[in-house]
Simulated assay, not measured.
Amino acid sequence: MINGALNIYKEKGVTSFYVVKEIRKILGVKKCGHAGTLDLSAEGVLQVCIGKGTKMVPFLQEEEKTYEAGIRLGISTDTQDSEGKIIRQCDDIKVDRENILAVLNRFTGVQEQIPPMFSALRFHGKRLYDLARQGIEVPRKPRLIKIYEINLLDFSVPYFKILVKCSKGTYIRTLASDIGEFLGCGAYLHSLKRIKIGKFMIENSLTIEEVKKLAREGKIEEKIYSSEEMLNEAKSFCLNNQKN
């Protein structure tokens, strides 16, 4: 019986649910779930908990997450990413590196963020994205999030890339859109890669094909993070976070 978690690399174009379904099928387990979804167009680290390891999901969700986000200036969409309908366009983008750095600095620390309409949150029992697809917009309560660190990695108009270390519940799509509003030209999330959650790092992640191969060879348990490892990591993060 396998208990614990796998560090899975979710590829673009597949859902987090699909990854869980495939892992469940490959390993022949019933209890299996992820500890934090990634959008269809996003890629990177997905923690997949198995067996008794599913009890660790609430603890893993508390951990700090690190993303590489590509942002496109001058265009705003209704979904805040490249999948949505263009709702505003600015052809005269007067933004330089210093402007971006100044705005990024404003987004560091504890802050309130309004979740996007295109999200899995519920309003009176209905998913927000279902309402959004019907053209219905409802009020959303701001949620408290924390951006531990945000750095500019690359900039070439109209695109730039940032590294974001943040708390659970942070919508990087919304962060990209909000940055665009502060810059005065609008923006949307062009690409997203989650490169780390706690001790789960992208360089150690496994593709579904690699999991299949390891399972056939009887070596998959070598890649399982035990519940004890995950609990100790979560406790360490919570203690450090309280100090900060």
Rank of each mutant, 00 (worst) to 15 (best):
L144I: 15
I145E: 00
K146Q: 11
I147D: 01
I147K: 01
I147F: 01
Y148S: 03
E149C: 05
I150C: 02
D154R: 12
F155Q: 00
Y159A: 13
F160E: 02
F160S: 02
K161V: 12
K161C: 12
I162K: 02
L163R: 11
V164G: 00
K168I: 01
G169R: 05
T170D: 01
R173S: 05
R173M: 05
T174V: 12
T174L: 07
L175V: 02
A176G: 06
D178W: 09
G180F: 04
G180W: 05
E181C: 06
F182M: 09
L183K: 05
G186C: 05
Y188I: 04
Y188L: 12
Y188A: 05
Y188D: 04
H190G: 07
L192G: 03
I195S: 10
I195T: 14
I195H: 08
I195N: 11
K196W: 07
K196N: 15
G198Q: 04
G198N: 03
K199Q: 12
F200P: 03
M201V: 13
M201P: 09
I202P: 05
E203V: 07
N204Q: 09
S205C: 10
L206C: 12
T207W: 12
I208V: 15
I208A: 14
E209N: 13
E209T: 11
E210I: 07
V211E: 09
K212P: 03
L214D: 07
L214A: 14
A215H: 10
A215N: 15
R216H: 13
R216E: 15
R216Y: 14
K219E: 10
K219Y: 04
I220L: 11
I220S: 03
E221M: 09
E222P: 04
K223S: 14
I224P: 01
S226H: 06
S227G: 11
E228Q: 15
E228F: 13
